[in-house]
Design a protein around this nucleic acid. Sequence first.
DNA 1: TATATCTCCTGCGGGC
DNA 2: TGCCCGCAGGAGATAT
Length: 296
Amino acid sequence: MPELPEVEVVRRGLHAHVVGHVVQAVRVTHPRSVRRHAPGADDLVAGLTGRQVAEACRRGKFLWLTFRQRNGKNGWQPTGTALVVHLGMSGQMLVQPASAPLPRHTHIVASLSGDEQLRFVDQRTFGSWTLSPLVSVAGSTVPELVAHIARDPLDPLFDEDAVVALLRRKHSEIKRVLLDQTVISGIGNIYADEALWRAGIHGRRLASSLTKPVLRGVLDAVRAVLADALAAGGTSFDALYVNVNGQSGYFDRSLAVYGRENQPCPRCGASIRREKFANRSSAFCPRCQPPPRARR
DNA sequence: TATATCTCCTGCGGGC
DNA sequence: TGCCCGCAGGAGATAT
């Protein structure tokens, strides 16, 4: 599933293969993939056609491209609008030759200068493309659609003291808070489980019950697991996550608890357990991560 | 206002 | 073999 490391791998691919290209044409074949763009598919197509890709950016799991438009004979000027892409659970951004066969579940095709195509492939259609104006928020320029998303742990301006203080005020389970993209962004179910295992904290512990040093340890674990996964090219359980060239990452081979139910904990040997948590699954080591005592 | 739960969606695997 | 059901989960909408 695409979380921060997977989205960053895609961003780097877009930076290398798409920046500088001009969008020649756009075709939307599945309306659900542009459902968040309120003015509709035609408006999105018009907003992209003829624009030159300027930058590929990311915050948390949100990805966006900025553009330039022709300014008479003097060249190009910024448009002030970004294409916000969310991969959802199964979205892929593939850069392929126009002559290559279209993969199944291709929902949007942007033809680029140089006979390449940027293809949005999304089996479960949780992902989307949306145009959004760029705005200035807390010293950064981001699409309006992303303005409510907190900085991620790999952001140079990530304020650990502020996040720890915010976590201390949350009367909710620590895993639930780690998944809240308005508190800290980029973490999904897989890396939340892995980081909590590294920190030795059970996901059902209340964030407000953890001390500052413990919360700093959790954030250190989050940073470490994200960095390790990024170095491995991301996590792939199946063909649902690939980079812009269609290749998978290798971090699934390094996972300690996620997807390892009933297998031994790499640290203590106890059997990894899985339980239902907030409509999804949670994996943990019952010895390294003792559950909290039942609350009344 | 803060927190919890529901909903969207498709492919796969297991059970019958 | 074919059908049905549960599972996977990000984020916005809705409920408490």
